[in-house]
């Protein structure tokens, strides 16, 4: 059986800067994989290449056996219906009320009637622990944690097969971060979706994943089951999970 998402040798540069330098990764159906790595290591770029928002310079990406490396136009719109995405900063549409944010993919992408879409949106908001009283607020009126939840509700609104979480806990206090982690873990389990998340928060990575892969200098340098992360024997991984300044990973700090 081939994996749900297969990334092979994906490269991506911005001008002279090589961000991805041959990334290989496979995500099986129903699995929750977390990519860890430092800020700016290309984690978000990897997700955007899979979604076709950025184009890989080289390599192939297949989803459900279909080569989607160069997918575009209306084919891409159809392809993207498989996905829900929680963006790093939420990326809620600030011109629309909360419920329309959640229902956006249903109304615009699938032509569901507004009334029906609103009921679904309120149902999804309840799933992430938000009452119907927030439905008519504007996203700017919500706290960071609530915005993440709305983003999560939007990501699951159209019952996707695959969900991407881009740094779901960044910028939240530890307690809210844990609430979001629990939400993600239960969402993935209850909906039976395939999840690919990226984070540099190890507590989050441990809680929401079955498998962890570490991205460093544009490549996956280690991957394995979450329970093996502490015995990886990889000095880069060890340094990262300890959050230590000492080790093989040198931060480029200009003095």
């Amino acid at each position: 059986m081939t994996a749900k998402i297969v990334i092979q040798g994906v490269e991506k540069s911005f001008g002279p800067k090589r961000v991805l330098d041959g990334v290989d990764l496979a995500v099986n159906k129903g699995e929750s994989v977390v990519i860890i790595g430092g800020s700016g290591s290309g984690k978000s770029v990897t997700l955007k290449c899979i979604l076709g928002i950025l184009r890989a310079d080289a390599g192939t990406i297949t989803v459900d056996g279909e080569d989607v490396t160069h997918i575009r136009g209306s084919k891409r719109d159809t392809y993207l219906r498989k996905f829900g995405m929680l963006f790093q900063g939420g990326a809620l549409f600030d011109s629309l009320p909360v419920w329309e944010n959640v229902a956006f993919g249903l109304i615009q992408g699938r032509g569901v009637k507004r009334g029906e879409a609103r009921d679904i949106a309120i149902d999804k908001l309840a799933k992430v622990g938000l009452g119907s009283e927030v439905a008519n607020l504007s996203p700017a009126e919500l706290s960071g944690g609530m915005q993440k939840r709305v983003g999560l509700a939007r990501a699951i609104a159209a019952d996707p097969e695959i969900i991407f979480f881009d740094e779901p806990t960044t910028g939240l206090d530890p307690i809210m971060a844990d609430v979001i982690n629990d939400l993600i873990a239960s969402t993935v389990k209850d909906l039976g979706v395939t999840a690919l998340s990226i984070t540099h928060d190890m507590a989050s990575a441990r809680k929401i994943s079955n498998r962890i892969a570490m991205l460093y200098k544009g490549r996956i340098i280690w991957e394995g089951p979450t329970e093996n992360i502490d015995s990886s024997g990889n000095p880069y991984v060890d340094q990262f999970i300890k959050g230590s300044a000492e080790g093989p990973i040198k931060m480029e700090v200009r003095r």
Binding site: G105, Q108, G109
Partner: peptide, 21 residues
């Protein structure tokens, strides 16, 4: 602002063409 806050990417992932929308 929509570009730098990834709202345009979000439109795309919701199967909505930002050019059209």
């Amino acid at each position: 602002t929509m570009r730098v806050t990834e709202q345009i990417d979000a439109l795309t992932t919701l199967s909505t063409n930002p050019m059209k929308y």
